[in-house]
Amino acid sequence: MGRRPNKRHGTANRPDPNRPRFYGRHAVYAALDNPNRKLRKLFGTHEELAKIVIPDGLAVQYGDAQDLGRLVPADAPHQGLVLEVEPLEELWLDEILLNPDPKAPLVLLDQVTDPHNVGAIIRSAAAFGARALITQDRHSPPESGSLARSASGALEALPWLRVVNLARALDEIAEAGYWRVGLAGEAETTLSEALTPAPQAIVLGAEGEGMRHNTREHCDVLAKLPITRAVESLNVSNAAAIALYAVASR
């Protein structure tokens, strides 16, 4: 795939943080199909590129599997496709809060930083018809290849907002008519008891530490999942999927 950079000085294969590289068929196909996604360059094997319709004007570079492997993290399953993109344009909270729908919950993450967890939560949120994902701008992962692959294409379908102050955002969410449910293992109320017919906002904290005190104070109710004592807690992405199912099946 062109001349290889000098090992001492070359930086050509280092991803630009402002232009993430997506890899794998689901993530790449979804990004190519998203009219709101700005595409920069598509890398691929002849076999895989022959299977897709390449958008007009998109720069393409052919290479073998080993070439593509140099563009992504070690052992990343690129499946013969790597796509360099620009992050999606920022959204505003008031846009998302227009016309709340009881069937379309909001999902808020309080300092969940693992891209695989965030990607999996985005996938579940899209699957259960969530309205949007909301995170803090300084304590959440950026768009990346690993996050996009974990989301399996859903990153292109689910609005993702980053806010400066999560507590302030929760206040605005309440004013818009949402019922704010924070998941906490020590809560007395179960999730099914905490849910109401109103539009729901599900709040989850980081693994281990959970939600911060100020975030808890801006929830209407704290609720727990009815798990047994066999395990202390669930992975945050699993908890999110269960909570979203509970909202969808009220």
Score class of each variant (00 low, 15 high):
Val107Arg: 04
Asp220Ile: 02
Arg25Pro: 02
Ala239Thr: 03
Ser237Trp: 01
Pro73Phe: 09
Arg180Val: 08
Arg180Trp: 00
Asn34Val: 15
Pro105Leu: 10
Ser150Phe: 07
Ala241Glu: 04
Val221Asp: 00
Tyr23Lys: 06
Asp110Tyr: 14
His46Phe: 08
Ser124Arg: 00
Ile121Glu: 02
Ile121Gln: 03
Ala31Met: 05
Leu109Tyr: 12
Gly129His: 00
Leu32Met: 11
Asn18Phe: 04
Leu191Lys: 01
Ala151Arg: 07
Ala30Phe: 09
Thr11Tyr: 00
Asn235Leu: 08
Pro141Asn: 08
Ala65Tyr: 11
Ile52Pro: 04
His46Ile: 13
Asp16Gly: 06
Asp110Lys: 15
Arg70Lys: 11
Ala125Tyr: 09
Ala104Cys: 10
Tyr62Gln: 12
Ala230Gly: 14
Lys41Cys: 10
Ala230Pro: 01
Leu106Ile: 05
Pro5Ala: 03
Glu47Gln: 06
Asn117Asp: 04
Gly69Tyr: 12
Asp64Thr: 13
Val236Lys: 01
Ile242Val: 14
Val118Cys: 10
Ser249Ile: 15
Leu39Glu: 03
Pro73Trp: 03
Val163Lys: 10
Lys224Arg: 15
Ala76Gly: 15
Leu39Trp: 01
Gly2Tyr: 00
Val107Cys: 12
Leu183Ser: 07
Ala59Asn: 09
Met211Leu: 13
Asn13Thr: 04
Gln136Cys: 06
Ala130Ile: 06
Lys51Trp: 14
Gly24Leu: 10
Leu91Tyr: 05
Gln79Asp: 15
Ser150Glu: 05
Ala241Ser: 15
Leu97Trp: 05
Arg19Gly: 02
Thr190Lys: 07
Val28Thr: 06
Gly24Val: 05
Ser146His: 01
Arg229Trp: 00
Arg70Asp: 09
Glu84Leu: 02
His213Arg: 15
Thr196Gly: 04
Ala74Arg: 08
Ile122Pro: 08
Ala130Asp: 01
Val236Trp: 03
Asn36Ser: 11
Val112Ala: 11
Pro77Glu: 07
Ala176Trp: 02
Asn238Ala: 13
Pro77His: 12
Asp16Asn: 12
Glu217Ile: 00
Asp114Tyr: 02
Val60Lys: 07
Ala184Asp: 14
Ala127Tyr: 04
Val72Asn: 04
Asp56His: 06
Ala174His: 05
Asp110Phe: 11
Glu86Asn: 08
Ala201Thr: 05
Met1Thr: 04
His218Asn: 11
Gly210Glu: 00
Ala74Pro: 01
Lys51Phe: 14
Ser233Tyr: 12
Val28Asn: 05
Leu32Phe: 03
Asp110Thr: 12
Pro15Tyr: 12
Leu225Trp: 02
Ala248Pro: 00
Ala157Thr: 10
Thr113Leu: 13
Arg168Phe: 13
Ala59Gln: 14
Asp16Val: 07
Pro102His: 13
Ala206Lys: 11
Arg8Phe: 07
Ala198His: 06
Ala201Asn: 06
Ala65Trp: 12
Asp101Val: 07
Ile122Gln: 03
Ala167Asn: 08
Ala76Pro: 14
Arg250Trp: 08
Ala126Phe: 02
Leu244Ile: 07
Glu207Ala: 07
Ile96His: 04
Pro141Thr: 02
Asp110Ser: 06
Val82His: 14
Gly63His: 03
Val72Met: 06
Ala230Asn: 08
His26Glu: 12
Glu209Met: 04
Leu98Glu: 06
Glu84Asp: 02
